[in-house]
Simulated assay, not measured.
Amino acid sequence: MSVISFDKLRDMRERPDAQFVRTDDHGQVMYLFALEYEMGLSTWSAKIWAYSFEDAEMRVKAMRESLAVCGQMHTSIGA
């Protein structure tokens, strides 16, 4: 697998594109982060919203300690 580094491009912009930024219920800005994990011979990905890179790392640490399957999703109802 090849990984492309976008560090130089990221440094050129103040913020990510709009679809990767949102504001929480308290007015704090959150960013979308990509996660990656391996299972067997395959590499899988997931995404989470976090306030910073450090916050994303803390969330992954919490997932390692307590992540559980809640059930299969069937639909989503917008609020």
Rank of each mutant, 00 (worst) to 15 (best):
M1W: 04
S2C: 01
V3C: 01
V3M: 06
D7A: 13
D7L: 11
D7V: 13
D7I: 09
K8I: 12
L9W: 08
R10T: 11
R10N: 11
R13T: 14
E14K: 12
R15D: 07
R15H: 06
A18N: 08
Q19A: 10
F20R: 05
V21N: 03
V21K: 11
R22Y: 02
T23W: 02
T23L: 02
D24E: 04
D24L: 07
D25W: 01
G27K: 03
G27W: 01
G27Y: 03
Q28Y: 05
V29W: 00
V29S: 05
V29I: 14
M30W: 03
Y31N: 04
Y31C: 05
L32G: 02
L35T: 15
E36C: 10
E38Q: 14
E38V: 13
G40T: 05
G40H: 00
G40S: 01
G40N: 01
L41Q: 08
L41R: 08
L41C: 03
W44G: 00
W44L: 10
W44R: 07
A46H: 05
A46G: 11
K47Q: 02
K47A: 13
K47I: 04
I48P: 00
I48Y: 02
W49H: 01
A50D: 00
A50R: 04
Y51W: 00
Y51C: 01
Y51D: 03
Y51H: 13
F53G: 06
E54D: 13
E54N: 13
D55T: 10
D55F: 09
E57N: 15
E57A: 12
R59Q: 15
V60H: 03
K61I: 09
A62W: 10
A62E: 15
A62G: 07
M63Q: 02
M63A: 14
R64Y: 07
R64V: 11
E65L: 04
E65H: 07
S66A: 15
S66P: 00
L67G: 02
A68K: 15
A68V: 15
V69L: 12
V69K: 10
V69W: 11
C70Y: 12
G71W: 05
G71T: 09
G71N: 03
G71E: 05
Q72S: 12
Q72W: 10
Q72I: 13
Q72D: 12
Q72T: 14
H74K: 10
H74L: 10
S76N: 07
I77E: 11
G78D: 09
G78K: 13
G78S: 11
A79G: 03
A79Y: 11
A79F: 08
